Amino acid sequence: MIRQFDLQLFTEEKTESATPKKMRDAREKGQVVQSKELSTAVAFLSVFLAMGAMSDYLINGMVGYFTMTMNLIPDVGQMFESEDYKLYMADMLMTILKYALPLLGVALVVGVLMSYIQVGFLFTTETLMPKLEKINPMKGFKNIFSMRSLVELVKSIAKASTLLYIAISYVLDHLPELLITFEIEPIQTMGIMWDIILGVVMRCALFLFIVAIFDYAYKRWKNSKDLMMTKQEIKDEYKQSEGDPKLKAKIKEKQRAFAMSRMMQSVPEADVVITNPTHFAIAIKYDSDKSDAPVVTAKGQDLVAMNIKRIATENAVPIVENKPLAQTLFRTVEIGQAIPPDLYEAVAEVLAYVYKLNRA
């Protein structure tokens, strides 16, 4: 029977959605939904859209630079024999940076923005911590030849083949335009080449964007499935976060017992105990130095009332029967509180009776 119970425990299915606490813990460990393909596709598309918007600036600038370079070709040998080549190399580097930095800035901003949209702000060092299982050669060998690796390989081949088809088919459709580039000016050639390259890139980026959307949706579904919990895991998490209900019940029981003990210790110091006579018992003490009105120091019902009356009898505390007053005090005044003004007269009569008995 024990083996059957253990088998049922270990084979319990994960049928419950992840709790907010488990999702927070997974996020802190770096287990988040993020598609690199989506960030790459959007950044790729954004860069070439920026290049399209800056096409006149880039084409004119590059043509001007290449024209200047071509004019320097006859003097290249002489240039490298002198110190001018350093200036030439520095000028070439600055020109490349001048046209490349705006595009790199667009790629950086879009990449950060896409990561933030997918993940939000997250800083964790959990993913950087070294793990021994990651350097296990046997486990690495299994991962290389696993079904998951095979699926990823097939996906990569299919994606590369589709991109190659998109590029080749677009170039073939514009082959007549490419053939006339040998007969026109360089500036016109660069314009035609740019239009063809931009067309290829836009179509490839659009394809990657569509693939990335499906990839992100799949990873989101896979992450939700991986984070699913069993009913026992949810119970264990509740115990850890809220505390064991049994332990909390024991603590409350001890607190009640401690409060009851303190209450019973105050009964011998009371001036009078007012009873129902069987169901309620309320101990009252009046100290004019501490309070302007009598204070309820103990009260109880049924068995607690019997204990209060027993302790009062043992310590010679007067017990007065007054059913309406006992019921009202029990329901309206808490332990440690002074009696309300509307009960002053009734309680005063009881105290006067008690004081008269004490003097007698």
Rank of each mutant, 00 (worst) to 15 (best):
I2Q: 01
R3Y: 08
Q4T: 15
Q4L: 15
T11E: 12
T19L: 15
M23N: 11
R27C: 06
Q34C: 02
S35W: 00
A41H: 00
F44R: 01
F44P: 01
F44E: 05
M62T: 08
T69I: 11
M70S: 14
I73K: 15
V76H: 05
M79G: 03
S82R: 06
L87H: 10
L87T: 06
M92I: 01
L97S: 14
A100C: 09
A100L: 12
P102A: 07
L104N: 08
Q118H: 00
V119F: 03
L122G: 08
P130I: 05
L150M: 15
F182T: 13
I184F: 02
T189I: 05
I197F: 08
I197E: 10
M202Y: 14
I213Q: 03
D215H: 01
K219Q: 15
K222V: 15
S224K: 13
K225W: 04
D226I: 05
K231E: 08
K235S: 09
S241H: 15
G243V: 09
P245V: 03
K248N: 03
E253Q: 15
K254P: 11
A259I: 09
A259Q: 10
S261G: 13
S261Y: 06
M263N: 03
M263S: 01
S266F: 06
I274M: 03
N276S: 12
T278Q: 08
F280C: 01
F280H: 01
A281I: 03
Y286P: 02
S288V: 14
V295G: 01
G300W: 00
D302Y: 02
L303C: 09
M306H: 07
I308T: 02
V317N: 02
P318I: 06
K323Q: 11
L343I: 02
A348V: 04
